[in-house]
Simulated scan of single mutants.
Amino acid sequence: MKLFAISDLHLSNPSNLEAFLALKEHAEDWLILGGDIAERPETLEIAFRHAVKSFACVIWVPGNHELWALPDENGEQICGVARYEHLVELARAYGVLTPEDPFIAWPGSLGDHGAPLVLAPLFLLYDYSFGPEGMSHAEIVAWAREMKCVAADEHLLASEPYVRVEDWCADRIKISEQRLSEIEVGSRTVLINHFPMRKDLIHIPRVPRFIPWCGTAKTENWHNKYNAEVVVTGHLHVRRTDWRDQTRFEEVSLGYPKQWDQAKGVAPYLRQILPYSQE
Rank of each mutant, 00 (worst) to 15 (best):
W68R: 13
Q77T: 13
V96W: 07
W143D: 00
Y128Q: 04
P71I: 08
D112T: 15
L124T: 07
T189L: 01
M135N: 03
L117G: 06
G80E: 09
W106E: 08
R145P: 00
E154Q: 14
G111K: 12
N74I: 01
F195D: 00
L125Q: 08
D171V: 10
A144D: 03
E154M: 13
A144M: 11
A82G: 10
A82D: 15
R145V: 00
C169L: 05
E73N: 08
L87Q: 05
E66H: 06
P205C: 01
T189W: 07
Y128C: 01
A152C: 14
V165P: 00
R179N: 08
F103K: 12
S181H: 07
F103R: 12
E184C: 03
H155Y: 12
L156E: 13
E76K: 12
D112L: 15
P102S: 11
W143Y: 06
Q77K: 15
N64W: 06
A69G: 05
M147Q: 14
G114Q: 13
E133H: 11
D167I: 02
E182N: 03
P71M: 06
S187K: 15
E139I: 08
R206L: 03
R92F: 10
P208C: 00
L124R: 12
E66L: 06
L90Y: 03
P99S: 05
L157F: 06
